[in-house]
Simulated scan of single mutants.
Amino acid sequence: MTDGILDYCLGKKGAVKEFPFGPEAAVIKVADKMFALLFEGNGENSRLNLKCDPMIAENLREQHEAVIPGYHMNKKHWNTVKLDGSLPNEDIYAMIDHSYDLIVQKLPKRIQETLSE
Rank of each mutant, 00 (worst) to 15 (best):
L6P: 01
L6V: 14
D7Q: 13
Y8D: 08
C9D: 11
C9E: 13
C9L: 12
K12Q: 14
V16S: 09
K17C: 15
E18C: 00
F19H: 14
F19E: 15
F21E: 11
P23E: 15
A25R: 08
A25S: 09
A25F: 10
V30Y: 07
A31H: 10
A31L: 07
D32S: 10
K33Y: 01
M34R: 01
F35V: 05
A36G: 13
L37N: 07
G41I: 04
G43K: 06
G43V: 03
E44L: 09
E44I: 06
N45A: 13
S46E: 00
S46K: 00
R47H: 14
L48K: 14
L50D: 13
K51Q: 13
D53M: 00
P54F: 05
P54M: 05
P54C: 05
I56E: 14
I56R: 13
E58F: 02
N59I: 09
N59M: 10
R61K: 12
E62F: 04
Q63T: 15
Q63G: 06
Q63S: 15
H64G: 07
H64Y: 15
H64N: 15
E65D: 15
A66G: 06
A66F: 06
A66N: 07
V67A: 07
I68E: 07
I68W: 01
P69T: 10
P69R: 10
Y71L: 09
K75G: 03
K75E: 06
H77A: 03
H77K: 02
W78E: 04
N79W: 04
T80F: 05
V81S: 10
V81T: 11
K82Q: 13
K82F: 04
K82E: 09
L83F: 04
L83E: 04
L83K: 06
D84C: 07
D84V: 05
G85T: 03
L87C: 01
